[in-house]
Computed example of a mutant assay.
Amino acid sequence: MQRVVKPKTQRGKRFLQEREAKIFENPKKTMFVKGGNTSQTVTQMLKELYQLKKDNAVMYKRKNIMRPFEDETQLEFFSQRCDASLFMFGSHSKKRPNNIVIGRLFDHHILDMIELGIENFKSMFDIEGAKCSAGTKPCMMFVGEQFDIEPDYIRLKNLFADFFRGVVIKQIRLQGLEHVIMITAAEGKIYLRNYKILLKKSGSKTPRIELDDMGPSVDFSVRRTKIASDDLYRRSLKQPKNAKVKKRKNISRDAFGSQLGRIHMQKQDLDNLQTRKMKGLKRGNPNKDATSSPNKKSKQSTEES
Rank of each mutant, 00 (worst) to 15 (best):
V143H: 05
D152C: 04
G166Q: 11
L159N: 07
C139R: 11
V143C: 07
M141P: 00
A134P: 06
K157F: 07
G135N: 13
E150K: 01
E145N: 08
P138C: 07
M140I: 15
Q146F: 00
G144N: 05
R173T: 11
M141F: 11
E150I: 06
M141L: 12
I154P: 00
K157R: 15
F142L: 03
R165M: 13
D162L: 12
I154Q: 12
V168S: 13
R173Y: 06
P151G: 06
P138D: 10
K137C: 06
D162S: 11
V168N: 15
P151M: 06
F160S: 05
L159P: 00
L156V: 04
G135I: 14
K170Q: 14
D148W: 06
L156F: 15
D162P: 00
F164G: 02
I149N: 09
K157V: 02
F142D: 00
R165P: 00
V143A: 03
I172Y: 06
Q146Y: 01
K170L: 10
L159R: 04
R173N: 08
K170H: 11
Y153G: 01
I172F: 06
T136N: 15
I169Y: 09
N158E: 14
V143M: 08
F164H: 01
R165D: 13
C139G: 08
I169T: 12
Y153I: 00
G144Y: 08
G135K: 14
I169F: 05
E150Y: 03
K170W: 06
F147S: 02
A134N: 09
D162T: 01
N158K: 14
R173P: 00
R173A: 04
F160E: 05
R155H: 12
G166H: 03
K157L: 06
D162K: 00
R155I: 10
P138W: 11
V168D: 14
P151I: 08
F164R: 00
